[in-house]
Simulated assay, not measured.
Amino acid sequence: MTLTELRYILALQDTGHFGKAAEKCFVSQPTLSVAVKKLEDELGVSLFERSRGQVKNTPIGEQILRQAQVVLQQSDRIYELAEQGRDPLGAPLSLGAIHTVGPYLYPRCVPVIRGEAPDMPLYIEEDYTSVLREKLRNGKLDAIVIALPFNEAEVVTQPLYDEPFVVLLPCDHPLAKKTAINNKDLERENVLLLGEGHCFRDQVMAACPNLRKHATRDERLLQSVVEGSSLETLKHMVVSKLGITILPMSAAQVAPYGQGVLCTRPFEKPPYRTVALAWRSSFPRHQAIDVVSQAIKAAAPGLATATAA
């Protein structure tokens, strides 16, 4: 049994196809097929069920593949430890962030990271919390930026900054005349929300449980139709006067639409989220984590600005 064979079977699990798994591993399909069969013969069990155009795990294969993932993670740690001994800020770092943080944080914090660690290649991505959690757990990401609460075994979380929520609305909307918004003001408004799966949607609903409390059936139907896939989509919807929305302050910049189009208003008692950095407790490059953490904290004051008409 070799680490290469373990990588092959994990690639086959991910793709469900011998040809695609071979491409992912940069080998020919016969090479990968022979290696998988050799491992199965050595173990004396079938790891995969093979059918025309489809490959899926056997029950025992599922267990072995989970252990293979653990073995590869531990082998990667050996390289990480060696790299740390040479230069903890010289090896690549993979950083993920949730969709409602990444677009507004990365432009501010990445230049700071570059300045502090110019020789550290940085790979960034955005995704849902659930996807980032899995990638952190299996070693595909080194650290992730998420909103608390976030609980995961053998993962360290460090709160970075608190970010208030604000209301975004057209400047000619009646609520724009108010200096601050309370929850009751929103009860009869068509408040545009992110779709299911976004943690920010859950945070808004928790902060404003009476949203759409008095909505009619037709209004509730409209609400379901105009749920957005991103905060930027919600902003475009507000410009189109489909409703108003609630955003984290970092996303509430309205400059692209020009003066007098959109404005933001604070809440009388501002709800907020706590943004945090999370990484595996076994991750050895603590100096790299410190650089990222400090860069995000340095960028945070710049996030707490929103344009108001």
Rank of each mutant, 00 (worst) to 15 (best):
T4H: 01
T4P: 00
E5D: 11
L6A: 02
L6S: 04
R7N: 01
R7K: 04
R7M: 03
R7H: 04
L10S: 09
L12Q: 03
G16L: 10
G16Q: 09
G19M: 01
A21H: 04
S28C: 00
S28I: 00
L32W: 07
V34H: 09
K37V: 04
K38A: 04
L39P: 02
L43S: 06
G44I: 06
G44M: 08
L47P: 04
L47K: 01
R52S: 03
R52I: 00
R52C: 07
I60G: 05
Q69C: 09
L72W: 04
Y79V: 09
E80P: 07
A82G: 08
E83S: 12
G85Q: 09
R86Y: 13
P88S: 13
G90A: 05
G90D: 01
T100Q: 15
Y104F: 07
P107L: 02
C109W: 13
C109T: 11
V110I: 15
P121V: 13
Y123T: 15
I124E: 07
E125G: 06
E126A: 14
E126L: 09
V131F: 03
E134A: 07
E134L: 10
K135R: 15
N138W: 10
L141P: 05
A143I: 11
V145G: 03
I146E: 04
P149N: 04
L160D: 04
F165T: 12
V166W: 08
L168W: 03
L168E: 06
C171E: 09
L175D: 11
A176E: 05
K177G: 12
K177D: 10
L186I: 12
E187Q: 11
N190H: 10
N190T: 14
E196Q: 01
H198D: 00
A206L: 13
N210G: 10
R212S: 09
K213Q: 15
K213M: 14
T216V: 02
R217Y: 03
D218E: 14
D218N: 06
R220I: 08
Q223Y: 14
G228T: 00
S230G: 02
S230E: 02
L231E: 11
L231W: 06
K235V: 04
V239R: 11
G243R: 02
T245P: 01
T245E: 00
L247C: 07
M249D: 00
V254C: 10
G258R: 13
Q259C: 05
Q259P: 08
V261P: 03
L262V: 06
T264Q: 09
P266E: 15
K269S: 08
R280A: 15
S281I: 12
S282K: 15
P284M: 03
D290Q: 14
V292D: 13
Q294I: 09
I296M: 05
L303C: 10
A304N: 15
A308S: 12
A309C: 05
